[in-house]
Amino acid sequence: MVVLREGMCPGLDADLVRDLRAADVKTVEDLVSSDTEDLAQKCSVSYRALFAIRRVLLAQHTAFPVSGADLYEELLSSTAILSTGNSSLDKLLDSGLYTGEITELSGGPGSGKSQVCFGVAVNISYHLKQSVIFIDTTGGLTARRLLQMLEAETSNREEQMEALQRIHIFRLFDVFSLLDCLYSLRTGMLQQASVGGGSVKAVIVDSVSAVIAPLLGGKQSEGMSLMTQVAGVLKTMAKDFNVAVLVTNHVTRSSSRVQPGLGVSWRHVPRTRILLERVEKAAAVSRSSMRSATLIKSSRQLCHKTEEFDLQRWCHSEGPSAKRKLEDMDS
């Protein structure tokens, strides 16, 4: 449903638009679905001209078939696999985050979603030297934590600063500003990418459920519509700009079974979903930093595979830290 305007295609001038409007043909859809012969008579315009306009409009609004071979060629040349910096997660994700896809992390409070996001951001900006866009909707991001992770990687102050400069942060707390941001990113992304050096390879939204959940529930249908909008723009962004999109989601618990939030319609959005959980040691007083990750949706790997990893040792730090030793002692 696009409104007819003059100049949309050759032959569609102001007079014709006015005549069409008088004949109750306002949108492209109206024009295409109406009887051309009939319309030509009503608007006193030649059948041939109207037919030509119709064809051009149809051509403008259609999608073109692409051959599989071309697609494969493009895939090989453009898809990158970004390592998360954590071998266990990489194993689950089939060696990392794929560009052009949406990957989702879900988990309860304190399950390490944000930490994984930070780790991924740091790894991409420091090891892969690419830019990252980090959209923080929960206020959980602190630059100090990012710096801490970088310090575990390198002691070179300059490299740390450079890596930090490649992480672009947006802080947004409602769905409309998120949409505003995503749409403006899509139009201005390429220019923005060049700012810190290296192109934008990943967009991280932590968390997507925080802005959408307040709109869902009750009898409101608008929340659903906005959720699909967010999903749509994330997907097209991932595809068009070849970036990896990483989102986080909360979990809901129905009779001790844990599953990602946002309901059934969101389930189709991410290509890969990972559920993070704390590993609770029986009778342990102090809480461990071990987390388990379970693959619950994937198009590449066998699902329900579980890997365990330690949040403390995200960034290849040498040997267990003091904290780890302490915990081993305690448990």
């Binding site: 630059a143 100090r144 990012l146 930090l164 672009h168 942060i169 403006s184 201005g188 220019q191 923005q192």
Partner: peptide, 26 residues
């Protein structure tokens, strides 16, 4: 919405900052 397009295009969208700027602010 159109205005924010331009701002983001110029690399100066109001909400955006790099992690380094955030660190300094913190």
């Amino acid at each position: 919405e159109g205005g924010s397009d331009k701002a983001a295009g110029a690399g100066g969208s109001s909400a955006s900052m790099t992690a380094l700027e955030l660190l300094q602010k913190e």
